[in-house]
Amino acid sequence: MNINVSLIGQMVTFILLVAFTMRFVWPHLRKALDDRARTIADGLAAAERGRQDLELAARRAADILREAKQQAQEVIAHADRRAAQIVEEAKGAAKTEGERILAGAKAEIEQEVFRAKEMLRAQVALLAVAGAEKILRREVDAKAHADLLNAIQAQL
């Protein structure tokens, strides 16, 4: 064991190495690892936030679905009511229309009857005149008997 100037030489080497590590190696590594730790922490926080958001969204979706179902039921009920109402209205309208058509037809028939009666009246009058002409076998003054004929026609 001999201690000599090598001791000092080795000390210099050692101190240089420590200084090198401290100056050039350590800061790089510390920065990289700290940054990574921060990145991971941020990622975990984001994941947690995402999970909460998802839960919230699921709850909202369920709410919306329930609301939609309720609304759909309301719409169906409304539609049913409306349909019943429309059927009732249609029934009423059909009845009125039928009555109206019936009344029209009756009026027309009456008119036809009335017209036929008029015609008959006129023809009966002519027939009566023609019959009278034949019976009498002579000229009858139509003008002189017009009053009479009209009176007969009115009686028919």
């Binding site: 090598s6 080497t13 990289a32």
Partner: peptide, 28 residues
Amino acid sequence: FWTLHVDSWLVSAVLGALVFGLVYRGAR
């Protein structure tokens, strides 16, 4: 006292340069 152990000094210095050079490459 002024004896210098060339082997100790050289080997340790070269090893230091090699190893810490490698570490520096990894850290840089």
